[in-house]
């Protein structure tokens, strides 16, 4: 079994069988992660560069761990203090790095479409580790993996993504992946943070958390960026917390348990109250472990494509 593309740019348009293959493969890698010796020789001799133009300690560490557990040689490149900040173009940077005989590039960039651009200028496999507010496919895959672990399937599982949908690559990748797999997806947030046309992607839109909460099996709660308040997207954090914050009190009004996910890092008591984040239905730490397994699966499967 092979993936149908040699790059992972996003989940938009990715066939269900590819998603299934990654999630299944991740299961075997998760078993490895639970063994005393967590390293396999799968990618021995391969060199992977982590090209991070935007700071993200969590995602970079997760990728790096996945790469090392597969015995790949790892090069880390971060934009701060590099020639990129001195005006070198992305194209030049990428070509220079590839001249050093790299097999795979993991790229994080603050502009949508840069991984797509990269595939036109380099020959390596390209993995999108987050591009602007476009896609973050491995995050969505690990979210889907976590949901599948919880519910045994994705089909007809009811998931609501809560928060700043308009500026979230996590939301978009989850919407693409989950709808492909037959889940029932909704989004909830202030109208100013719901992007135009989102309903055409096959999701229901809610503006009140209390309206949607009784109708879902899981909430994927997004981090609210504090600068959105300054940008005039919502009036105050207090008001946001009151109307869109996921709290124990709010959850207690629903008669069934709701799985709580969050891509991290959490603003405690803003989008998520501390007792919910640490509560019995939170799978947030499980997501972190699953992230390594899903990334191992992705790297392994992409290395097998031509």
């Amino acid at each position: 079994m092979k993936l149908s593309s040699r790059h992972l740019l996003g989940l938009d348009g990715m066939p269900a069988k590819d998603i299934e293959l990654i999630l299944e493969t991740a299961t075997s890698f998760k078993e490895i992660l639970n063994r005393p010796i967590k390293k396999v020789p799968t990618l021995q001799g391969k060199t992977i560069v982590n090209l991070f133009f935007e700071n993200s300690t969590r995602t970079r560490i997760s990728f790096e761990l996945a790469e090392r557990r597969l015995s790949a040689d790892v090069v880390n490149f971060s934009a701060a203090g590099s020639s990129v900040s001195k005006g070198e173009t992305l194209k030049d940077t990428a070509r220079n790095i590839e001249a050093m005989k790299i097999d795979m590039v993991v790229i994080r960039h603050n502009v949508a479409g840069t991984p797509n651009f990269l595939t036109q200028v380099v020959k390596s496999n390209v993995i999108n580790a987050g591009d602007g507010i476009h896609e973050h496919p491995t995050q969505a895959l690990l979210d889907m993996y976590t949901l599948k672990e919880q519910f045994g399937k994705l089909e007809n599982v009811r998931v609501c993504i809560v928060g700043d949908i308009a500026h979230s690559r996590v939301a978009l990748s989850n919407i693409y992946g989950l709808t492909t797999m037959g889940a029932e997806v909704s989004v909830c947030g202030p109208a100013t943070l719901i992007p135009r046309g989102i309903e055409k992607l096959g999701v229901k839109v809610f503006y009140r958390l209390d309206d949607v909460i009784s109708k879902v099996d899981a909430l994927n709660v997004l981090r609210i960026q504090l600068e959105r308040q300054a940008g005039g997207m919502f009036p105050t954090l207090r008001e946001y917390h009151r109307f869109f914050g996921v709290t124990k009190e709010r959850l207690s009004r629903v008669d069934h348990p709701i799985t709580i996910m969050h891509p991290g890092p959490i603003n405690r008591d803003v989008e998520l109250s501390a007792d919910v984040a640490d509560g019995p239905h939170s799978v947030i730490l499980e997501q972190v472990l699953n992230g390594v397994a899903v990334r191992m699966a992705t790297l392994y499967l992409l290395s097998a494509t031509e």
Partner: peptide, 15 residues
């Protein structure tokens, strides 16, 4: 253009 495509691509839109 702001709309379905800008939303799908995560690019800032001009309404």
């Amino acid at each position: 253009n702001e709309g379905l495509v800008s939303t799908s691509l995560g690019l800032p839109g001009i309404p």
